[in-house]
């Protein structure tokens, strides 16, 4: 008898669950479908309308384009300026990222392996102060500083990205490196490796996963950032990055929205391609970064 009872219980709960499971599944599917619609519908509208002329778009905003009309794309790509902005964005993102990817792990390595020394402990706490500081309080004085240094340009922006990447980067790497066993490094040093050799031959290979997380987080930030370029570069048109170009496009081309849509789509394209190729790594990399920091 005693062995029947639990089975009965499971049986009844299964029956009871079947109806409930159905309700739950429908609710879930409705939620997901609504989400998909909300995310994809605006993107769809942007996509179809960039193949239309202004006339066609104002007649039928929701309809498919009558033909694949690439005039907008052609016009955009023929204007010299567009490539200048792409170039600016590429320059800023690549240079900042290259420096940060080499520089932050090295600094973190120095801190992580010397935590028993006062200077390094101070440096760690000092850099972590950045956690408490919102960008607004730095941005106003920094504009004045950069303007007196004649650095209201791409190089000034790069320098600031490198500096502002320190807090999160050092936090992630110091904790990661401290969890690694120190014995291999000690063995290498006994064999006569210098600090830098030990780093490049051994530590670098162990921290590769963290480096990819850092690269994903920071590349997305540099490429998409609006606030810092706006404060620093909005007055000098030649130095605009893509987000600034998009922002200023609103005022200049507000009447010709198929053109504006084309500009958005074409600016999104590089990100879209990269995302499609490695969305798995991007999501897991960003999650790792966010959960740890």
């Amino acid at each position: 008898m005693t062995s029947v009872n639990p089975k009965m219980k499971v049986g009844t709960s299964m029956v009871h669950n079947r109806g409930e499971t159905f309700v739950w599944h429908s609710l879930r599917n409705i939620t997901l479908a609504a989400g998909l619609l909300l995310i994809l519908f605006p993107m769809w509208l942007v996509l179809i309308n960039c193949f239309k002329s202004l006339e066609e778009a104002s007649q039928s905003f929701f309809a498919l384009p009558q033909s694949v009309n690439l005039d907008n794309v052609r016009e955009l790509l023929q204007s010299q300026n567009y490539f200048r902005y792409v170039g600016n964005s590429l320059l800023v993102t690549c240079v900042s990222m290259a420096v940060v990817a080499v520089f932050i792990p090295l600094v973190s390595y120095a801190i992580a392996r010397n935590m028993h020394r006062g200077y390094y402990r101070f440096l760690y706490v000092y850099i972590m102060l950045g956690l408490f500081i919102p960008s607004q309080i730095i941005l106003l004085p920094i504009v004045k500083q950069m303007s007196s240094l004649k650095m209201l340009n791409s190089w000034g922006l790069i320098l600031l990205y490198i500096t502002f990447s320190l807090t999160r980067g050092v936090f992630l790497f110091v904790n990661y490196i401290r969890a690694l066993p120190i014995e291999i490094e000690e063995a290498a040093q006994i064999d006569g490796c210098t600090v830098v050799q030990t780093y490049f031959r051994i530590v670098l290979h162990l921290i590769k996963p963290m480096i990819s997380t850092l690269v994903i987080m920071d590349v997305l930030w540099y490429w998409n950032d609006f606030q810092l370029p706006l404060f620093l570069l909005n007055r000098s048109r030649d130095m605009w990055t893509l987000p600034l170009f998009q922002y200023n496009f609103k005022t200049e081309y507000s009447f010709d929205y198929p053109m504006a849509f084309t500009a958005y789509i074409i600016s999104l394209l590089p990100v879209l391609v990269v995302y499609c190729c490695c969305q798995k790594y991007i999501i897991s990399g960003l999650t790792a970064g966010a959960v740890k920091s």
């Binding site: 605006p42 609006f226 987000p243 998009q246 922002y247 849509f261 600016s267 990100v271 995302y275 991007i282």
Partner: peptide, 17 residues
């Protein structure tokens, strides 16, 4: 991937779209 897609694009593009 779809639900994460908005995090990939710049805030300005999102706002203007």
């Amino acid at each position: 991937s779809v639900f994460f897609f908005p995090a990939m694009i710049s805030s300005v593009a999102v706002a203007l779209i």
